[in-house]
Amino acid sequence: MNLKLKVWRQDNAEDDGRFEYFEALDISPDMSFLEMLDVVNEGIISDGDEAIAFDSDCREGICGTCSMVINGVPHGGQKGTTACQLHMRHFNDGDTIVIEPWRATAFPVHRDLIVDRSSFDRIQRSGGFISVRTGSVPDANATPVAKENSDLAMDAAQCIGCGACVAACKNASAMLFVAAKVSHLSLMPQGQPERNRRALAMVNQMDEEGFGNCSVNGSCEAVCPKEISLDFIARMNREYGRALLKKGCS
């Protein structure tokens, strides 16, 4: 099939950016979306022009590197699917596809479709860990974890940190991401000693990075490739309230 692409191009963070148009010809329905872009890029490079820059790495939906908004929807709108696992069979011959980077003040554009998500790293760094030194730990079975809690923690821990939640949110809120991280660790017994500190620190860092606030629209949940539930946001709110009462008063 043949497609028209309307792609965001931006030379660097300071550039204003613009849309450019490309043709994607002879596209096979078996291609992944990124392979389609690879094909277009091969053509662009052969013409001596600069390829469309986009992030991708594992291309199997787990590393969270790929990040593009396809026709207004982060990752293209197939349930539980990252852009790298989106296949062209979901498009029709003659379609025009609009491709844009994640849009959020906290995710400045590096180039074309590549954005800077280091704000996520900084949130994690502010408290998204359990402070254990290598070696100074008890036997793994010395701390039993109720299967229900462990499973729920795993649901949250599945987050691949791609940032689609932020990209989809009309407020560019990072709540789903932070909630998944806070929930994962607060559900494990190992995470209890730092539970309150962690919630306060991560929320403060989230605010500092310039993400917006949650309006409970659920766009984040809708586009999350790991289908992480809004419930975790409620859980984080609860965690935060608890932390405020316990720590905030001191």
Binding site: T134, A140, P144, V145, H184, Q190
Partner: peptide, 22 residues
Amino acid sequence: VDIIDQCAAQGVPFAREYGGLL
């Protein structure tokens, strides 16, 4: 054996049995 201890202490949500053990 130390690796599993280490990772469990970091909060890695390993699969568990109903008794809470790995």
